[in-house]
């Protein structure tokens, strides 16, 4: 059922930063799900199979959109991909490691070092400033925040918030908050970025802007897995995985040039 991975011409992309940083060569599979299941036992007769045997391989540097009706298990899968949740059965290889049986602390470590999250509801910490929000993942890596300040400021500038460093999330618009979240997801130089309906709370114009930012990250070599209901959003991806009832229904490849990437 799973597709043959596309072999994108490495010439089209600059050096895959994410892949290189995590020791994964560009184009290699960084995510491999094998017969992944997630079941919620709510009562004796009431068992929800949120994921019912998913096999999926995602390659470094790709941009994958996950679509499907509500309740089809998209978020559940993304949470497992993000090591926030553990599968009931099946295996999940991140790079070469099987993370499905890792300890809680090890999973925290993986989240902090290899994964960047972008949520539908931004999820910034209210009492921290823009700059401090961007620094949070570094804090849990035990890095001295002062030495990485420049980098965080640079990221803020990258998402167009260089002049809002000391603002609180409540003083920002939704689009601006989501940009902060994007900057935060990048600060660890993660292996991949997981986004669950990142434009779901935004109007179409702001959504497009945010999406443009995300596609640009992909062009710079980041692997992106994005859950969406919006076909326009999915158009940006090279691959659309459609889910239904906890299974992969269709797995569509698009022509590499279908990505609305401006010539670089």
């Amino acid at each position: 059922m799973s597709s043959v991975p596309p072999k994108p011409s490495s010439a089209r992309r600059p050096s895959g930063r994410a892949g290189a940083a995590a020791g994964t060569a560009f184009g290699e599979s960084i995510i491999r799900l094998e017969a992944l299941q997630k079941t919620y036992v709510l009562g004796e007769e009431n068992i929800v199979r949120a994921l019912d045997g998913v096999d999926l391989t995602i390659h470094a540097g790709s941009f994958v959109a996950i679509m499907g009706p509500s309740g089809s298990g998209k978020s559940t899968m993304l949470n497992i991909l993000g090591c926030l949740d553990r599968p009931t059965a099946g295996r999940y290889f991140l790079g070469t490691e099987d993370v499905s049986r890792m300890s809680d602390d090890a999973l925290s470590e993986v989240r902090g070092r290899r994964i960047g999250f972008i949520f539908q509801s931004y999820n910034l910490i209210a009492q921290l400033t823009v700059l401090e929000n961007i620094q949070v993942p570094l804090f849990y890596r035990g890095q001295d925040i002062k030495t990485s300040r420049d980098r965080c400021v640079e990221l803020a500038k990258l998402v167009g918030l260089g002049d809002r460093l000391t603002h609180r999330p409540s003083q920002l618009s939704g689009g601006q908050q989501q940009r902060v979240a994007i900057a935060r997801s990048l600060v660890n130089d993660p292996l991949m970025i997981l986004a669950d309906e990142p434009t779901g709370n935004l109007d179409s114009k702001t959504g497009t802007e945010v999406l443009g930012l995300i596609s640009r990250l992909n062009q710079d070599g980041k692997t992106i897995v994005l859950v969406t209901h919006d076909d326009k959003v999915a158009e940006r991806a090279q691959r659309v995985v459609r889910m239904k009832d906890g299974r992969i229904d269709r797995d569509e490849q698009r022509a590499p040039n279908a990505t609305a990437a401006p010539a670089r």
């Binding site: 999250f117 910490i125 849990y140």
Partner: peptide
Amino acid sequence: TREIGIRRALGAKKAD
């Protein structure tokens, strides 16, 4: 609770 979830997602261990 939400903040705790965010911190956990961003790499905070239980001990943190």
